[in-house]
């Protein structure tokens, strides 16, 4: 079954569409990398895919339901661009953030043993047990990203949507972060990732969608590197990507 079905979706902020006639499916258990130049509509498309925006035309369905009316919000873990770097002064701890993963199911009332176990398991799964009582604002960028992943895992999310999660994260933490995503994907979690580093995307994902307002490519990373989709999508600016030293 498809986790997400995008059907001929068009969306514009003003008159000029930023996403134009895009269609593709994301199967359950896929690890999709969404690539494209700056301003190519990647973030907007991701927001359309998880129902944060309503398409001007076309439709998006999420686990078989219309995405904008999707009721089981806790099935989706979304980490917006730069959210991990925002709100650094709020004295909230790692455990308090991970507990939020349970909030959609338990808006009021005491946490059950199952809730508490899910929180502790999620903290352990992403390897931040030693940081559980630290303030989120005091962590490094890579550690903070793990907190957000743990929050989604605590909510037993089926889909993880990440918008450039490793911006400003050092290379080593970045590598181990993608290893973690890879493992979680192997365990059955569907992942949609926006990433500007094409190398990361081609090595870690199972499929790639290349976007610049329109969809230029959707398929396996192996097929992607064989095509000219990247050059086409980046258009005239392609020479900027390749440096000859």
């Amino acid at each position: 079954m498809s986790a997400i079905e995008v059907r001929d979706v068009t969306f514009a902020y003003a008159s000029e569409p930023v996403v134009d006639g895009v269609s593709f499916d994301v199967e359950e258990g896929a690890f999709l990398g969404l690539v494209g130049p700056n301003g190519s509509g990647k973030t907007t498309l991701l927001e359309l895919m998880i129902g944060l925006r309503r398409p001007d035309s076309g439709s998006v369905s999420l686990f078989g339901e219309p995405a904008v009316d999707f009721a089981d919000g806790e099935r989706i873990g979304y980490v917006a661009q730069d959210v991990a770097n925002a709100n650094g002064e709020m004295p909230i701890t790692v455990r308090e953030v991970v507990r939020m993963g349970r909030y959609p199911r338990r808006l009021v009332g005491c946490f059950s043993d199952a809730d508490r176990r899910a929180v502790e398991d999620a903290i352990e799964r992403v390897g931040i047990s030693d940081l559980a009582d630290r303030r989120v604002g005091r962590l490094s960028g890579g550690q903070r990203q793990r907190v957000f992943i743990a929050r989604a895992l605590a909510g037993e999310a089926d889909l993880l949507a990440l918008d450039e999660p490793t911006t400003g994260v050092d290379a080593e933490s970045r590598e181990s972060f993608y290893d973690l995503l890879h493992e979680l994907n192997d365990e059955g979690l569907t992942v949609v990732l926006i990433e500007h580093d094409i190398g990361v995307v081609t090595t870690h994902t199972t499929e790639i969608a290349c976007l610049n307002r329109e969809l230029y490519f959707h398929g396996s990373p192996e097929a992607f590197v064989e095509t000219d989709a990247l050059a086409d999508a980046y258009g005239g600016s392609q020479h900027v990507i390749h440096h000859d030293h």
């Binding site: 944060l52 979304y78 959210v83 909030y103």
Partner: peptide
């Protein structure tokens, strides 16, 4: 009564919207 959603919205407004709050 509204403590948990208020905390969620305060910390991560977009994330809160994504989970349907």
């Amino acid at each position: 009564a509204a403590y948990r959603p208020l905390v969620y919205v305060t910390f991560d407004e977009v994330g809160a919207r994504a989970v349907g709050l």
